[in-house]
Amino acid sequence: MKHLPLPVFSLFVIALPLILSNNYYLMALNIAALNVVIVIGLNLLMGYAGQISLGHAAFFGLGAYLSAILTTTCGFPVWPTIPAAMAITAVVAYLIGIPTLKLEGHYLVMATLGFNVIVYIVMIQLSAVTGGPSGFAGIPRLQIGGFAFDSDLKIYYLFWAVAILVLILSLNLIHSRAGRAMAALSHNEIAARCTGIDTETYKVKIFVISAALASLAGSLYAHYISFISPGSFSIFFSLQAVTMVLVGGMGSVWGSLFGAILLSLLPEVLHSVKEYNVLVYGFILMAVLMFFPRGLFPAGRSFCIAMIRKKT
C-alpha cells in the first residue's frame, strides 16, 4: 500500500503520451517535469528547513546560463557540464547560505531575493557573455552517442525519468535519519538541537541541495529549448515556484509533484479564456491558499482517508 503510488504514477507517466493527441501539451508537460524538480527541491527547504528562498529562479538561471556558456562558448561536452553547473551553483548557494542561515529569522529570503535581482541584472548587462536582453541562442541539444533527443516525445521520457528519480531520492531522504532530523528541526529547533542535531549545518545542506536541483532543471531547460533569455529567470519565476510549493503543500513531496504539474499546466488550460487567464489563475491560487492553507495535496489525502474510514 505504502509503495503503491510510485509505480502507479510511473505507469501513468509512461502511458500518457499514448493517449495525448496534441503535441502542444507534450511541451507543456516537459516544462512541468522541470518545474517538478525545482519545486521538490524548494519544498525540502521550505517544508523541512523552515526557510524560504526567493532566488530559485536565479539558481535555475545559473544552471541554464552555465550550461549554455560552457558548452556553446567554451565547447565543453554537454553531459559533464550539467553536474559541473550544479556544483558551481551549489558553491554559490553555500556562500549565500553560510552567513544567512546561521542567523535566526528569515534572512535567507532577503539574501536570495537580492541575489536573484543581481543575477538577473548580470544576465542582461554582461551581454558579451550572456547575449544580454536578446538572449543566448544555439545551445546544443541533448544526445547520447548517436541518439539525439530531438523530439518533444523523447525529451518527455528523459525529463520525466529525471523528475521521477528526484521524487524517489527525495522520498528516500525524508524517510531516513537525515530526513527525520530535517523534520525535527523544522518543527522544533530547540528540541532538535538538544537532541544532538546540528541544525545550522542541516539548513545549509538542504539549501545547497535545493539550489543544485534548480540548476539541474536549468541545464536541462537550456539544452531542450536551445535558446534562453533573462526573462525566464526573473524574480517572478521564483515567486511562482514558491506558490507551487504552497499550493501542493509544504513538507509534502508528493504535494510538490502535483502542485508543480497543476500550476504548470493551468495557464495552458486557461488559454481559452485568454484575457482573463491571469485573473482566473490568481483567483484559483487565492482560493487554494484560503481554503486549503496546508496545500491541496495534504487536504485531498485527509479527505480520501476520511472517506475510506467512513466506508469501512
Binding site: L169, S170, N172, L173, H175, S176, R177, A178, G179, R180, A181, A183, A184, S186, H187, N188, A191, A192, T195, G196, I197, K205, I209, G251
Partner: peptide
C-alpha cells in the same frame, strides 16, 4: 516533534549515536 509518530520521536533521539547522512539516505 508533534509532526512525527511516537516511534519517530525516539528514532530522532538516536541521532547523535548514528551517522548516515543525506546521500546515504537518498
Amino acid at each position: 516533534f508533534m509532526n512525527m509518530t511516537v516511534l519517530e520521536n525516539v528514532m530522532v533521539g538516536m541521532h547523535s549515536r548514528t551517522t548516515s547522512g543525506f546521500f546515504k539516505g537518498m
